[in-house]
Nucleic acid binder design. Structure first.
Length: 672
RNA sequence: GCCGCAGUGGCUCAGGGGUAGAGCGCGCCAUUGGUAAUGGUGAGGUCGGGAGUUCGAAUCUCCCCUGUGGCACCA
């Protein structure tokens, strides 16, 4: 931190427009900005130096490419603003609640959080107070200064002021890295930076959102800290837009829509399991029918396997040792009926509700002797599984304890893994497209540290999946070490209408389970061989996927999936007879239609059915009755179209016919 | 499982130590209205469960359950 700039070499700074400014010696971003102009100085937040973002106060002592960062550089600006906002929050918290320790406070999507250690956790009521203090700190416009400290000095300092977590963090900073401390007014925090030149630059476009518990270093064995989440934007308008987005997302909440549309419910006697109502189950059945059709086209054969299986099988498959804590275990015993409560002896054989279908599918495969000529064998099952998920994990349809997977297992030879994987990727892409999710990302999760099987086998397995992706030109990223213990997997993450991603599909190649459960086939040379098992699912679970679709479509399902596809309603009771006839005609055409003959005004009925998100309202009055027509009003539109009844039915039937991926498979064939 | 918050009629929510309120919905009556709420009227709850404090608790305290926002978990 030398103040002596006289006898230094000149420093040339090249700006984004390629112009170069020369200074006598080391120069700060602040000096550069003021040299360019007062407007820029005022707007400057930080400076990019040879690609790295620096504080404005940091001296640049060598020729560099630089650019001043202002709020116009949205991404960089937000990174800095949000992190400063976290610091200002921490300062406010420590001013208001002395004795609170700070830990870490990183940026996250749309905002930041900071974890504090405090005997009494913060509550939502504290947020307004903290926020008010933050605005004060911004008003104080405290200068923020970067200091490089000696590691041990820093540790001693933070220990001496009772910041034991910070001291621990410094201890874990790699040896070669500088320990930087930022001074913000009289408040200090260990931080990598960069930061704004002063708190006043933050502005007022921030808001504290919620409090939550979080484990120190993300480990549930550690103590729980108290976390405060906040959001921060370049200006008030952006903040408002963000809050509006949250409100819009809330409106799509499948739990809310599920209640409003009478699709399903939960109750405490079956926590985590869904009661599907008639309307919701129509969606389920339609989706299941569609998937069943697609699987049939790809030569899967549907099976159905038991719910309750002996623990012996789970021991053999490996689930008993690894996944037992998530399994519902049932003693195979008749409980005593002498008392009010069932008395169990405790020494009965144990059964378990299946958490997965794969061991059962192996049992089906193992019936009879299989030849290499029989492979691949593709089994599908809408397998109902139970998993004892932690109470805190349950979340509407998205995380349930009883779930139905669109599960399937392909038993094949090693040399068939790639082509089977290609076929699966094609099927999955086509299904997602049919269901309204054309965009998805793929991750290839490779071998974890703890794994079964030799490296040679893993090489083969990973390669096979990779080749499948490349064969179809599917872009993907690696997820190193994220594979299952028995084999690598592909994860398919789809994007919904409001930009969120959901992992639904999966393809896992498994060389281990066939061995554990002793599945074999007879090879061409007469030897016994192990088949490779491909675990695959497209939707994942029906429950969760329907939840995702409800939110994706905001309840406005495409016509073929809508529980009620059309409502027919007369304007006056004079048209009741005709409306009844129209209704019968729609039902005869296979459409799911309701007839609303209630004595209500048409406005009222249109409003109600629009709220119920019925895709088509067919209004008939005497005009339509006399001409054999219907007035069609589509959901989301204020317009009406008067059509001949037959034409209207034909259009609805066409739109209500489930897609079958034909378009896509034709394209695929044309391209290959 | 851990931390915070919540739990009032079918739904959304107000109230808050002296024996429960609103809107919507529902029932009934009138209204036959041309595309997002016709008018009137009536019936619904003992305030998640248990214990305690109190003359008295839905309202305060404690415990439990469930939900919810996160954390951990998600084979």
């Amino acid at each position: 931190m030398s103040e002596n700039k006289s006898a230094q070499n000149p420093v040339n700074l090249r700006l984004p427009d390629s112009s170069v400014r020369t200074f006598d010696g080391p120069v700060t971003g602040t000096t550069l900005a003021s040299d360019i102009g007062p407007g820029l100085l005022k707007a400057a937040l930080a400076i990019r130096v040879n690609g790295e973002v620096w504080d404005l106060s940091r001296e640049i002592d060598a020729d560099s490419d630089v650019s001043i960062i202002t709020k116009r550089d949205t991404d960089e600006a937000l990174d800095i603003l949000r992190h400063d906002c976290a610091h200002i929050m921490a300062e406010a918290v420590q001013e208001l609640f002395p004795g609170t320790q700070v830990t870490i406070g990183p940026n996250i999507t749309d905002g930041f959080f900071y974890d504090f250690a405090r005997d009494k956790p913060f509550t939502e009521d504290d947020l307004a107070v903290i926020e008010a203090r933050m605005h004060e700190i911004v008003k104080r416009d405290e200068p923020i200064e970067r200091e490089v400290w000696d590691r041990n000095t820093a540790i001693d300092h933070f220990k001496s002021i009772g910041e034991h977590y910070k001291a621990e963090i410094i201890g874990s900073i790699p040896a070669g890295e500088a320990v930087t401390v930022y001074r913000q007014g009289s408040w200090k925090d260990l931080c990598r930076g960069p930061h704004l030149p002063s708190t006043g630059k933050l502005g007022d476009a921030f808001k504290l959102m919620k409090v939550a518990g979080a484990y120190w270093r993300g480990d549930s064995k550690n103590e729980m800290l108290t976390r405060i989440y906040g959001t921060c934007w370049t200006d008030k308008k952006e903040l408002k837009a963000y809050l509006h987005r949250l409100e819009e997302a809330e409106k799509r909440d499948h739990r809310k829509l599920g209640r409003e549309m009478d699709l399903f419910h939960f109750q405490e006697e079956a926590q985590g399991s869904v009661f599907w109502h008639p309307q919701g189950y129509k969606v389920w059945l339609e989706l299941e029918k569609y998937i069943r059709g697609r699987l049939g086209d790809d030569d899967y054969r549907e099976i159905k396997t038991p719910q309750l299986l002996d623990s012996k099988l789970w021991e053999q498959s490996g689930h008993w040792s690894k996944f037992r804590e998530n399994m519902f275990v049932v003693p195979d015993e008749v409980p005593s009926i002498d008392d009010d409560t069932p008395i169990l002896s405790g020494d009965a054989k144990l059964m378990a509700l299946k958490p997965m279908n794969c061991p059962a599918h192996v049992q089906v495969f193992k019936q009879g002797i299989k030849s290499y000529r029989d492979l691949p064998i593709r089994y599908a099952e809408f397998g109902c599984c139970h998993r004892n998920e932690a109470h805190g994990a349950l979340h509407g349809l998205m995380r349930v304890r009883q779930m139905t997977q669109d599960d399937g297992h392909v038993f094949c030879r090693e040399d068939q893994v790639t082509e089977e994987s290609v076929a699966f990727c094609d099927l999955l892409a086509s299904v997602y497209s049919d269901l309204g999710f054309p965009n998805f990302k793929v991750l290839l999760a490779t071998r974890p540290d703890v794994r079964a099987g030799s490296d040679e086998v893993w090489d083969k397995a990973e390669k096979a999946l990779e080749m499948a992706l490349k064969a179809r030109g599917i872009e993907f990223d690696y997820a190193p070490g994220e594979g299952a213990f028995y084999g690598p997997k592909l994860e398919f993450h789809l994007s919904d209408a409001i930009g969120r991603t959901w992992q639904c599909g999966t393809l896992q190649s498994d060389f281990v389970l066939p061995e554990r459960l002793d599945a074999t086939y007879i090879a061409q040379d007469g030897s016994k061989q192990r088949p490779v098992m491909l675990h695959r699912a497209i939707l994942g679970t029906l429950e969760r996927f329907i939840g995702i679709m409800i939110e994706h479509y905001a309840g406005r399902m495409p016509l073929w999936l809508a529980p009620t596809q059309a409502v027919i309603t007369p304007i006056t009771s004079d048209a009741d007879a005709y409306a009844t006839k129209v209704h019968a005609a729609l039902e005869a055409a296979g459409l799911r239609a309701d007839l609303d003959l209630r004595n209500e005004k048409i406005n009222y009925k249109v409003r109600e059915h629009s709220h119920a998100k019925v895709p088509a309202i067919l209004v008939v009055g005497m005009r339509e009755a006399d001409n054999g027509q219907v007035s069609v009003r589509r959901l989301g539109s204020k317009d009406q179209t008067v059509l001949d009844l037959d034409d209207a039915i034909a259009a609805l039937v066409a739109e209500g016919t489930p897609p079958n991926g034909e378009e896509r498979s034709r394209e695929t064939q044309a391209n290959s």
